[in-house]
Amino acid sequence: MKLAFFGGIYSNSLALEAAIRDSRNRGAERLFCLGDLGAFGPHPDRVFPLLIENDVAVVQGNYDHSIGNDLKDCQCGYTDPRDNYFAQISYEYTYENTSPENRQWMKELPREIRFEVDGRRILLCHGSPRKTNEFLWESTTSTHFLEKLADDYEADLILGTHTGLHWERELSNGRRFVNVGVLGRPENDGNTNVWYTLLTLENGKCDVEFVPLEYDFRQLAREMREESLPEEFIVTILSGWWTTCLEVLPGRERRSGRF
């Protein structure tokens, strides 16, 4: 069985459309999204019909929780004033451009999704199983911490997103943690593509494939400009380098970026 997992969409409906098509072409039978539908990009309402019409099962992200519950910010936990400035522009734009029906839809999304394939217990969350807005970065998450999460939450495979960077760690007894990456923006590596994850479960084996996805990023940049979104966000889409919300990056991940 092949499953596709999409991380934060951040209103990038163009990448979502491309990911749905690409994953279906590669044989994905079921599609999942791990939350953060809005933020950063233009026209947040364009994401919802794609998810609904394509039967994408969705976990609630911190952004979805905030917008759905009419909170005042995205709960990303920034303290840096520049980060907060840009996060707030993005949040207010997204809130104002998300219909009340779609806000209500986000409010009702589940915090986690659990299912089994061939006896393998799979747990989908946004940040971590214990907290929606917990950042699990590759360089700041010890392996024994992940082992404990897998024990405590009785899961063989935990999939999350939230940080914006894909990675995975093998655990004991064939268990695994996977950060599926995000569709919303590139990975701060100077490339414009975004990432999603394919999981193949066959004959007791579990294969994780991180898929680099090309999409019409120039069109996205044009739409962002038309909506007067900050030039800093557009630079990220066109260059592949993160320009804002950098405070929460650990040293190792920050070092590999440009800013």
Binding site: Q75, G77, G127, F135, T140, E247, V248, P250
Partner: peptide, 9 residues
């Protein structure tokens, strides 16, 4: 705690 581990609401 470092900002990278913050889960401030």
């Amino acid at each position: 705690t470092n900002a990278s581990s913050s889960t401030r609401e």
